[in-house]
């Protein structure tokens, strides 16, 4: 009898603890629910409607929004721009970050290690909009520092943000500068966990620079490489702030010139908040979501064949 009471007391206590735990989670769960999940679900909903934020009248239109998009060249161009941006940014940021991490690896173990790490990481913690404005000056075709340096070496001086050819590369350069630190620090972490014995064995086996990297280091950091590639891809497909800031201002509406930097997130923003086509923007978001999901699954599928987990 007393055992049963004891046991029910225990269960009661466990229940109270569980409830208390959920209670602690509740505020953040509410915030997520209201500002992330509910809008996301709502977005799927309105992408099948004609929906207007100012009136309560909305009509179910099925796939009409999607059909409109398919016949809209700008939608395809924005997708192409996004993919162009992603295809350049992801491999280059991954390789540069890994290369930088390999170069800094020795320095990290020395006394100034944390200072080096902070310096590398610093650009990533600066606000995108503020630093973008600085980079607008740097990219200025006539008075910018970049063209001054190029001119000094008698190299061609592109029009950067004013040129349809060079606007996107300019955005890419800024994004590389801003995000490289994060990925470098991730790689530095991975390199610091390389098993010491294995590295020493490789040293005794006379494995030198490229062979050591190709056969030992690269495979052993492959899980972090996979993480970096996935993260960089998602970030690249969603890039917004730097494009908005860099290509807005004196060069007219964001995404220019001549839609050269109109990526899907820029187009979604403009469709929703400038042209007030919320349903169309939602449909685009849904497509972007599916695209990111598909790419991530593809990467996962590839990774399962290439990545080695210890």
């Amino acid at each position: 009898m007393s055992v049963m009471i004891e046991r029910s007391r225990l269960t009661l206590r466990r229940h109270v603890e569980t409830l208390f735990g959920f209670g602690l989670l509740l505020p953040s769960m509410l915030i997520f629910l209201v500002f992330f999940y509910a809008p996301a679900v709502f977005l799927v909903y309105i992408s099948f409607f004609h929906w207007n934020i100012f009136t309560s009248r909305s009509a179910f239109v099925g796939f009409e929004n999607f059909i409109i998009l398919i016949h809209q060249p700008l939608f395809w161009q924005s997708l192409a721009n996004s993919l162009y941006y992603t295809a350049v940014i992801v491999p280059s940021v991954t390789m540069l970050a890994l290369g930088l991490a390999l170069l800094l690896r020795g320095g990290i173990r020395s006394k100034g290690g944390s200072a080096i790490r902070s310096m590398v990481f610093l650009p990533h913690v600066t606000p995108v909009v503020a630093t973008s404005i600085i980079w607008i000056w740097l990219f200025d075709p006539q008075f910018g520092l970049i063209n001054a340096v190029l001119g000094f070496f008698h190299l061609p001086q592109p029009g950067w943000l004013g040129s349809t050819h060079w606007a996107m590369p300019a955005v890419m350069i800024f994004s590389l500068w801003h995000s490289l630190g994060l990925y470098t620090v991730l790689f530095l972490g991975a390199l610091s966990t390389l098993p010491r014995g294995v590295m020493e064995a490789a040293q005794l086996d006379n494995a030198r620079s490229w062979y050591l990297f190709r056969r030992i280091i690269w495979p052993l950091v492959s899980p972090v490489t996979f993480f970096v590639v996935v993260l960089a891809t998602i970030n690249a497909l969603q890039t917004f702030s730097q494009i908005y800031t860099l290509t807005g201002g004196p060069h007219g509406g964001a995404g220019g010139p001549a839609f050269a930097t109109t990526t899907d997130s820029i187009l979604i923003y403009q469709t929703a908040f400038i042209y007030q086509h919320f349903s169309l923007a939602s449909a685009m978001s849904l497509i972007l979501f599916i695209l990111i999901l598909a790419l991530t699954l593809l990467q996962k599928w590839i990774a399962d064949r290439l990545v080695f987990y210890r």
Partner: peptide, 27 residues
């Protein structure tokens, strides 16, 4: 170290975890 023609056996083996036994031996 690589030029010394030394064969070392480590306490925790220090095998290359991502390579097969054949590849470990061939390394």
């Amino acid at each position: 170290p690589g030029e010394r023609k030394i064969g070392m056996v480590f306490q925790n083996y220090a095998l290359y975890p991502h390579l097969t036994v054949f590849e470990n031996l061939a390394f």
